[in-house]
Design a protein around this nucleic acid. Structure first.
Lengths: 353, 353
DNA sequence: CGCAAAGACTAAAGCGCATTAGCTCTTCGC
DNA sequence: GCGAAGAGCTAATGCGCTTTAGTCTTTGCG
């Protein structure tokens, strides 16, 4: 910067003014300085900038999931990819951290805050009684809860925390309607981790929809999102005396694992059993039969989250944004329910080809 | 820090010395300062630290893949997870960026370097005639090429660039041996992007192994790693007059897509066709039949990469590390080759159940 | 014509830490 | 007993940028 000032024959302050669009330099001087800076390929040093008032030009994202379930869902990289699109435009960096649990996640926020390493954070996997909005609100660290949050908390206490909602209820309604229209009356929902708020919302939505449609046999079982628990839960459910004719899985991995169990048992999909995956992904399209799934635009979701955060960083008040309802793409894994003979024993599990 | 100095009754310098383990303070004073600092929950501000000589305590990782193939492989998140384990211990942050292409990737390195935003970078997907080692070497930005690199370049020009090699040749040899032992004589390799160095190495290794074993029909076709190209390539290969009896896929997504094609055509796996996936993942274990795959410890791979980088940051000379050869896990997708009747027309494709 | 106000620019302070030079007091060696 | 050495600490400087408080010049207007 000193160089630029020297070569342009002005003071360092003038350079700073010129390059940051501040008033105090004539248009002609400004242009001259701009040219010199560009010629020298100058870029402000991030640390210096951060030290003198500006933020760190970085937002944080921490992923707290057991290692076992990491890296299986397409969801996160898609989300991050969308987040980046928005952040890059604003010249913001993304500080990324993978940790084991919630405590470590909170510790990470505290550290980032203390070190002034990030200007804000994006928070995923909202939970029931989530301590994070309060924590972040208390620290005054701008944040966006991705995938909704307890509204009660969000409203009162933490004006720095925005929320971005996915329409879990709407999606669940669409799925259940789809299955109901195909004649399914016994539906089981293989859900994810019970401590996640969206898991609870989905479970509640299933119950509500079932009530609305008069379905008496619509239940949810929770898993840890891992393939092994997905397979185990599927086995358990299919072993019931009156197994369901349709299964709803909370993510693609669970669904694929479930599909494998069905194939392994010689159960024909979708003739004998219909499957729905909550998240669409390459996975859902790759397996045979392809899995019916809601077509969420995850990258857009990430983009919107990043937008909500940048708005917050610009001083806008915290708010709530709702994602539009995605379309449910019917694929090969869902079909008309098998003829409902009252004595269902024969079409149950254990049909080894 | 001023606070700490005040409360401990010493100067700021003493605090700095004490907290950074520098000589110049008595043990008892040091302990007192430590206690006060802890009590106040003090953390050095990252920007200030970076400004005064220290590095930015951050390393960068940029992912340059077409959006289509993003977020499908478990590989990356696993890798990142391993990287983090190592970095966290050293208090280093990970700045993460997703871009569309190689040019954007290089631009990102330049910007990070100019802004002093990172102390070093981890580079994935080495390519043929890769411009990145030279670029990074030229900038003097410490870097680790993950998954080997052109040794020629690495040796001479860029003393700041280490390489971490995966034993592609060894894995390919193991796979081919496995298939050969099962009686397979016609093998096709559905590879990834041809511009990646490891793709070329795998192709070359297949050729070498085939020559060694006297296989005349061992070929490779390249794809962009996407499920659609994986499926398309599989169809094309199976449509040949003398289709192969075994397919080797360069990642899990390709393999799963290929498996779906086989199932769709009613080709029994592994009775009529054996499949091998290069990367193991939940995916490979979830589908039915489960896919034979080499059990690479991807998290360890990431850990080692991070270790190589921290070594570099500590001033160690650049070097090359080699990952151990992973074990090939035989699963349901590989079996003995179908009886090789000279007239093979019947067991070809188009067997609709 | 004189004075105020606006415009263009510079000097200097400060952000929070690390570091170097310097200062004081004790201890040791001869 | 006196100088040197060293331990324990403080004062001051600098990192590269932003920003505030000026300085100087020009312009407008009564």
């Amino acid at each position: 910067m000193k160089d630029i000032a020297l070569r342009a024959g002005v003071s360092e302050s003038a350079v700073s003014f010129a390059l940051n669009g501040r008033p105090g330099v004539s248009p002609v001087t400004r242009e001259r300085i701009r040219r010199v800076a560009e010629q020298l390929g100058w870029q402000p040093r991030a640390a210096a900038r951060a030290l003198s008032g500006e933020g760190s030009a970085t937002v944080g994202l921490v992923l707290a999931r057991p290692a076992r379930t990491l890296g299986v869902e397409s969801f996160f990289l898609q989300l991050v990819s969308g987040i980046q699109e928005e952040l890059s435009e604003r010249g913001l960096g993304l500080l990324f951290q993978v940790v084991e649990g919630l405590d470590a996640e909170c510790a990470t926020y505290r550290r980032w805050w203390a070190e002034h390493r990030v200007d804000g954070v994006l928070v995923v996997d909202p939970r029931q009684d989530d301590p994070r909005p309060d924590l972040l609100g208390g620290l005054g660290l701008p944040a966006v809860m991705i995938g909704d949050a307890d509204r009660a908390t969000a409203d009162d206490e933490s004006p720095a925390v925005s929320t971005l909602g996915a329409d879990d209820a709407g999606i669940m309604a669409a799925i259940v309607s789809h299955l109901h229209a195909l004649g399914h009356r016994r539906i089981t929902h293989i859900a994810g981790l019970p401590e996640f708020a969206h898991t609870q919302r989905r479970i509640a939505s299933l119950r509500a929809e079932a009530a609305r449609l008069g379905l008496t046999e619509a239940t949810s079982v929770t898993t840890d999102y891992s393939d092994s628990e997905g397979a185990a839960a599927t086995r358990r459910v299919l072993d019931q005396p009156q197994p369901p004719t349709a299964l709803i899985y909370d993510n693609d991995v669970l669904a694929v694992a479930g599909l494998a169990v069905a194939l392994e048992r010689g159960i024909r999909v979708p003739d004998q059993l219909s499957l729905v995956a909550w998240d669409d992904s390459v996975l859902c399209r790759s397996v045979h039969p392809a899995l019916t799934a809601p077509l969420r635009d995850t990258a857009a979701f990430g983009r919107h989250a990043a937008q909500a955060l940048t708005a917050l960083l610009d001083g806008a008040p915290a708010g709530h944004t709702q994602e539009p309802l995605p379309r449910l793409e019917a694929r090969g894994s869902t079909g008309t329910a098998p003829a409902t003979a009252p004595q269902e024993g024969r079409s149950g599990p254990r049909q080894t080809s």
